[in-house]
Amino acid sequence: MSSGNERLIEAEDHYETAVGAMFPGERAVFRGYDLHRQLKSWEWLELYIYGVTGRHFSGDDLRILNTLFVFTSYPDPRIWLNRIAALAGTARSTGALGLSGAISAAEATILGPRANLRAIHFCQTTRKRVDAGEDLEEIVIGELRQRRVLYGFGRPVVSGDDERIAPTMKLLQEYGRVDGSHISLVQDIQTLLIKKRLRLRLNFGGLTAAICADFGLAPRQFYLGSLLSLAAGMLPGFVDTLEHEEGTFFPLHCNRVDYRGQEPRRWI
């Protein structure tokens, strides 16, 4: 066998890292900085994104990222992820369990960070292909033919415009960032979809992917950075269900089950 256990032997009680460590009673280090002395004026989101990406966003960039987090924090307890937290509340579970259950489901394929990962990859590869001379319409139609989806466009359950797009575009205008090459690309795709009479529209994940691609984030940095972007909308539903009587968050009676399986049979 090729590698064997040498790497395990080397790694036993030996782990090297640059991300940080605590020195109990003295100090804590966060990616090369003294947390309590050098980073005390940082905002929490600034630290979070620095921790994930190793890149320091500040000023207008940080303000834009912060607003993206704000714009997608919907406390509607019916939204699938939030509903996990709300169900945890009506079941009288705990806050951490409700939140962790909801966040663990954020890596869904139809929305959230996993969809975002695919959206930024599509955005970046399409930008490169267009820059190399390929025709945008052919790329988009080809993608739709091959995958039947266009990552960053369309939404589950609802159709039409994503209500977050207009305020986000306004935000970009305010900061003079509307001309980024990836932002321009997704707008060109949107125009193309309208021209082709296709019902898909740019969604918030697609636009944030374009913004973060213009920031130069790699797909995995964007995905990990967006993992908590839905979090602020999760716990309000949990808190609210605690203020209602237990078990009263959308209870279902037996006839709300549409059974389409085997007829009754005996286990003999």
């Binding site: 030996h14 782990y15 090297e16 890292t17 640059a18 460590a21 100090r27 280090v29 090369g32 900085y33």
Partner: peptide
């Protein structure tokens, strides 16, 4: 744990 990026006491 070996910290490879340590600013040291500040």
């Amino acid at each position: 744990l070996k910290l490879t990026d340590d600013p040291g006491p500040i």
